[in-house]
Amino acid sequence: MSIAVLGAGAFGSALAVALATRGPVTLWGRATGWGRENPRLPGVTLPDAVTVTGDLPQAARADTLLLALPAQKLGAFLADHAAHLDGKTLVSTAKGIDLTRLTGPSRLIASACPAATIAVLTGPSFAADIARGLPTALTLACADPGRGKALQHALSTPVLRLYRSSDVTGAELGGALKNVIAIAAGTVIGAGLGDSARAAIITRGFAEMTRLSARLGARPETLTGLSGLGDLMLTCSSVQSRNFRFGHAIGSGTDFDSGTTVEGAATARAVTRLAAELDEELPIAAMVARLAQGAVSVENAMEHLMNRPLKEE
């Protein structure tokens, strides 16, 4: 099985490094003039088994294409390049909900590339850890059990362990929604509200994640696995998480690099609109959407959440 990673950001480059221990990998990106060291992944040199190219048709000749692209850019990429992608096995690593269509990556791919086999690779992971060869476990979700098993074996390495699932919807929703809660957790810590408050946000945020995911057809057990609870724990507790750092900047009133992709900010807006359509109440996600847009202060957001009607857990 030949493999290419489309998207030469930190995560795409890290996946290429990890998969190169199994054999040749092609890494495609629009700007790849940095040679063997991606500035987004400092201290990591791409092994010789990784071929870096800016030629998409060349990269797309591989049997399996990992789409390591931001969630809000995936739709446009698919629209531009569907002719090169359709009929392939396409594995999305995006963690978000498209703002325009209010859907996850798998449906965007299915719409643009109806003949493709679709899978989702997600779970608790930082690019730097994967690139350094640190032990990492992820979820690989594919509705086709046979293809899912083949991908599981092809993409696993001695330090990158993949667990298989057929619940594509649950896997990608877990990865998307946890980013929203990570912003909330970062805000709590940045504002100096303490670890007890963070624990409450994580717990009640997880309840929102599971409630919305169930409405959209996900299996509850998927959300308690790596792609849901596992990823939530990681992103809500580490400054390596861009979503957590973004929330921390909001809470502390400090500047944040506007050039850094924060998937949870756009996803919070998409989730709020989706919840309204479903008549589903998601107070934390709704407040994160407002905080990310500067529409409410941290003090007012916390006051609103703490003064909601008392109820059973």
Rank of each mutant, 00 (worst) to 15 (best):
Q72Y: 10
T53P: 07
L90T: 00
D55F: 01
E312L: 04
D167T: 10
A115M: 03
T21I: 01
A60F: 08
S166Y: 05
G186M: 04
G230P: 05
L108G: 13
A110R: 11
G146M: 09
E312T: 05
F246I: 01
R204A: 12
P24I: 00
E280W: 03
R242N: 11
T139F: 05
R30K: 11
A141Q: 02
G9N: 07
N243G: 07
D86V: 01
L69G: 05
I250N: 04
E37P: 08
A8C: 13
W28Q: 11
T136Y: 08
P309Q: 02
A207R: 01
S297I: 13
A20W: 10
L274D: 02
S165I: 01
K73E: 15
R269Y: 00
E312Q: 04
A143P: 02
L46A: 06
T136C: 07
L65S: 10
T100D: 14
L46C: 04
W28K: 09
N300Y: 02
N38H: 11
L19I: 13
T136M: 07
A83P: 01
S297T: 15
S165F: 05
G251Q: 12
S2M: 06
S238W: 00
S227Q: 06
G9T: 04
A197C: 15
A301K: 03
T64A: 02
A150M: 14
C142L: 11
G205H: 04
L134K: 15
T122Y: 07
P158F: 06
G75P: 00
P309D: 05
A207N: 00
A49V: 03
E263A: 06
A286E: 14
C236R: 07
D129T: 08
G225W: 03
R61V: 00
L66P: 11
T187D: 07
L274M: 08
D80C: 05
S258E: 14
T51A: 12
L74R: 10
P57A: 05
E313C: 04
R215Y: 02
A185V: 03
S213A: 15
I130Q: 07
F246V: 01
